[in-house]
Design a protein around this nucleic acid. Structure first.
Lengths: 344, 344
DNA sequence: TTGAAAGCGCTAACAA
DNA sequence: TTGTTAGCGCTTTCAA
């Protein structure tokens, strides 16, 4: 026996129906303690009878909060990122916030648009990645938001809370693994150098070589874009060389498909002709033949942590200046790596 | 030289700064034509100087619209569904709406919660799937929303606009393909019978058999849940039988990984020991060895169409009673199907 | 404990 | 063309 919801029922209607004032009705709705039990019952009955639903816009105007959070990821169609978002969402759900989810596609213009949109909407907080950690225009847009920001896998000093993944350590392990199998020409394809994940992966790559006393061939480090299409192009061009690499690392989530397509385009066998390591786990990595060795980490935990950090900031603006959290990675060894061919 | 945004600037401040009334300021903001050019310039300057951003909640209260749309999918971590959402989002973006995205996870209780949330939020429209087309409680919740709904891949008479995929035709083609290769025991694992995609796939499965004059073994039709884990269990149990099927069709997007895990668990080779067909394309299907034959369709186009249908309804409530659109599917033949072994 | 009333920031109707 | 003003629906003082 719900109301139709078509001609909207207001708190005034509820008050009239219950024979009390709007103040009292409001108190019942907001579960204030100082209400005569009898009135509470009557208001509840009126709400039920009329099918009353509080108008969020009006509440927002009074309270100054929309109870909504923005989240900007690189690309929501990458399953691990969608998992990250989903985990964050479950935390926000419980706290009574809704999520505005967007993909910035690594494009500065799109990111600026989204920032402007979220600012207009006066969201209560934002979890975001960024196309560039050094771009002045993006920095300025971020700083003039007026609500707390948690940066996801981006590292900007004094700017905002940062939730980071320990890509350097993951890469050290992966490269050491390949080095110990005998590989000496390991191709790393990763994304934009103006971002933390690219920087820290390259750092780990160098450190592993250094620790093994093996010089780095700079031509084997390809920092372009995190897109799978970019991974394909970079990998394909390197595999076409006479002195081609004996191993490839997809240095970004979502890049493995591009790398594998390039390997297939050159009719190379994994792991006989070329060893492959991915970043971020996926159905593809698990079910490929052979299964692909990957560096992985817990996206769900990352999502929950990021959400809680934003919620903390909203609750009390005056907390630790900047927080910086580093999440561990894990190397999962499967069947995609072997010793290189003797003639390689 | 933007405002900090911390102590919010109102239209009144803008009007004062520009030396005009709030009415004029409002007209400039809303791009009304009847404003003296000089005043327009001054108001724009004031907005710039003060860093004014209109308060959406206040606008919403006046206009009665939040300019937001809800979208409920089964699981946002399934890439094709995320692609569907992304395509819809691009249409809403341009129309000045934001999207509230949620996964219902095929759970009735979760779906009811989301419906209630969106109703409270008074979104302007909703694109949704549903766990069950026949559940009375879900139907009632849907009907009392107070805003237009487009059902995505669910078919409910007289209920709302429906955007459907022609699974029956896709399945007819897939099954005919297998039948013509000589398969006689084709396992179909699909989702809940209370949903259109399961029903229409089973229908297509039967029709293909009928057309070929081959009787259907009912034990080979498994309608459980669309979850990958369910696909794994159903497939694994059937592959363990002595008279095991010679082909399997994953009858739902996101189910292919489950099917492939089951095949792997039984150490069966594709396509020598068993033929496999998936629903919905994916990196996994493309890059598996061999690549997997799939029934696919254009999710982006579906997303855009669904978005436009909602926008139509919002623009003019009094349009065609119910619209029902059927999207075509395509069978993409790759390397995962072969003639069954003679002894099977 | 309750009711009355003052706004929150904005748009639009009305008057000038 | 412009200014003034009445609300939109709600929460929260302030008095009673």
């Amino acid at each position: 026996m719900q109301g139709t919801g078509v001609k909207s029922v207001t708190i005034r209607d509820v008050a009239r129906e219950a024979g009390v004032s709007v103040g009292t009705a409001s108190r019942v709705i907001n579960e204030a303690s100082n209400v005569e039990p009898e009135n509470r019952v009557r208001v509840r009955a009126a709400i039920e009878k009329l099918g009353f639903v509080p108008n969020r816009a009006a509440q927002s105007m009074r309270n100054g909060s929309n109870r909504e959070i923005g989240i900007i990821v690189r690309d929501i169609t990458i399953p691990v990122l969608a998992g990250f978002v989903k985990a964050a969402q479950s935390v926000f759900d419980q706290a009574g916030y809704v999520l505005l989810i967007s993909s910035a596609e690594n494009e500065k213009s799109r990111e600026l648009e989204l920032l402007s949109l979220l600012r207009r909407r006066r969201v209560d907080g934002l979890i975001m990645t960024t196309a560039s950690q050094v771009d002045a225009q993006l920095a300025s847009a971020r700083e003039h938001l007026g609500f707390p920001v948690v940066l996801f896998d981006r590292d900007i000093a004094n700017a905002a809370d940062c939730v980071l993944i320990d890509h350097a350590e993951g890469m050290r392990q992966a490269v050491s693994h390949l080095l110990s199998l005998g590989h000496r020409r390991i191709l790393l394809v990763t994304g934009d150098l103006e971002t933390y994940p690219a920087q820290s992966r390259i750092q780990g790559y160098r450190q592993a070589h250094q620790a093994a006393g093996i010089p780095v061939d700079e031509a084997l480090i390809h920092a372009g874009s995190f897109e799978a299409s970019s991974a394909f192009v970079e990998t394909a061009s390197m595999l076409g060389m006479t002195n081609r690499p004996s191993a490839v690392i997809a240095g970004g989530i979502g890049m493995l498909p591009g790398v594998m397509k390039a390997v297939r385009a050159h009719s190379l066998r994994i792991p006989e002709d070329i060893s492959v390591i991915g970043n971020g786990d996926s159905d593809l990595a698990v079910l490929a033949s052979p299964a692909i060795t990957v560096i992985k980490w817990d996206y769900s935990e990352l999502g929950r942590t990021s959400a809680r950090m934003i919620l903390d900031r909203i609750a009390s603006r005056a907390v630790p200046a900047q927080r910086r959290i580093l999440f561990p990675t894990e190397l999962v060894i499967r069947g995609s790596c072997a010793a290189p061919l003797a003639d390689a």
